[in-house]
Design a protein around this nucleic acid. Structure first.
Lengths: 110, 110
DNA sequence: TTTATATTTAACCTAAAGGTTAATTAACTA
DNA sequence: TAGTTAATTAACCTTTAGGTTAAATATAAA
């Protein structure tokens, strides 16, 4: 078995799943709605599996409403990722500062 | 082939690799230094592989110094993750607010 | 030039990830 | 009850991930 954070990162490591999350950031949606944009590229069962990965990782919550399964984002899992990331903020901000400084030099060059 | 962000998330989806990053957040280190805490659990080649995954994901940079290979964190890749996360901030802050509100109710209960 | 230290590469193994198609379950509707 | 829509499960396949041990390479030091 795998630790929670690894599971969450693994869930995020797939473009289809990130696209599903992006859809859900616009609001609740059921499985076939979510699947629609992908059905040229993959089957419905594939989407079911992706959603299950997201659900196990805690990134989404699936409920029941008649024959539909409305899904919505679940903030807590995102928070755990954000919290872990926090300890590295100093590193990415530092490299952002370097970029900013560099841009300043090239734009003032004229 | 895989997109960059997926590669980065996949690299983060392993506790050994996250521990390697944590070590590197304390400063540069070479491969055998980094490997030391893990050698009870896995071999040196395993660490070499993990470091290669981190390097391909852009999370670390490996240089050469005599027979050593000093590694250091690379802020840019962290920034890309942080930037992607940003669009979900509203969701995790909202759930944090709910938690905060809940904690307020239980602590005032006495 | 031999030896020691640091690291990587090669060849292999097993389990899991991500997809498929076909069959099944669940709930509504005529 | 039969049919339709929504979603899942089962059985399968192929590729990749993460580990191993043994051998190879790179650099320094004796």
């Amino acid at each position: 078995m795998e630790d929670k954070l690894s599971q969450t990162f693994a869930a995020l490591a797939d473009p289809t799943r990130r696209a599903l999350l992006a859809q859900l950031s616009q609001g609740e949606a059921n499985v076939s709605d979510l699947a629609k944009p992908f059905l040229n590229d993959m089957s419905l069962p594939a989407i079911t599996k992706h959603l299950k990965v997201l659900e196990k990782a805690g990134l989404i919550t699936k409920t029941r409403e008649a024959q539909w399964r409305p899904c919505k984002l679940n903030g807590e899992a995102f928070k755990e990722v954000a919290d872990w990331m926090e300890q590295y903020r100093i590193f990415w901000e530092e490299s952002f500062d370097r970029l900013e400084a560099y841009l300043k030099t090239v734009t003032s060059e004229k």
